[in-house]
Computed example of a mutant assay.
Amino acid sequence: MLRINSIQTDNIRELTKKEKVLRLNLKSWVISVMSSLILQPHLGLYAFAFFFLILIFFYVIEFFDDDIVDIAIATLQLKTNIQIYYP
């Protein structure tokens, strides 16, 4: 006699899916808000326009690659003094 057991579970969340708020990841929002708040004393009301320009920039670059902000942050955190990179 052949006995077949099966188990079914609900897929709660995809593992590779990034958390997004209004189509931008959380790091993009933090960078946009913090940069406009830091520059607000210097720019005054133009900081709101700067905030929207940064958001538009992040929307465009994240349209092409969702990980571009993570790659840029990782590149800035490299602690080597190597000036030439070989592929």
Rank of each mutant, 00 (worst) to 15 (best):
F64C: 03
T9L: 10
L43N: 01
V69Y: 02
L22W: 05
M1L: 11
A47I: 01
I7V: 09
L55T: 01
A49Q: 11
I7S: 09
I73M: 11
D67Q: 08
I61K: 03
V69F: 02
F48P: 01
M34P: 00
I54Y: 03
S6C: 05
A74M: 06
K18Q: 11
I54L: 14
K17E: 15
L76P: 01
W29G: 00
I38H: 07
L43Q: 00
Q8K: 13
D70C: 03
T75C: 07
L22C: 04
F57L: 11
L78K: 15
K27F: 10
D67E: 15
T80C: 04
I73C: 02
L37W: 05
I56E: 09
L15T: 09
Y46L: 15
K27Y: 14
V69S: 00
L2I: 08
L45T: 09
L78E: 13
F50K: 01
Y85N: 08
A47D: 00
I4W: 04
N81G: 15
S35W: 01
S35A: 09
I56K: 12
E14Q: 09
T75V: 04
S6N: 06
S32Y: 00
M1A: 08
D10F: 13
Q8R: 09
R13H: 07
Q8C: 05
F51G: 00
L55N: 05
I38Y: 10
I71Y: 11
I54H: 03
A49P: 00
V33F: 11
E62S: 03
Q83E: 13
Q40W: 07
S28G: 15
N5A: 08
T80S: 12
N25Y: 02
Y59N: 04
S32E: 00
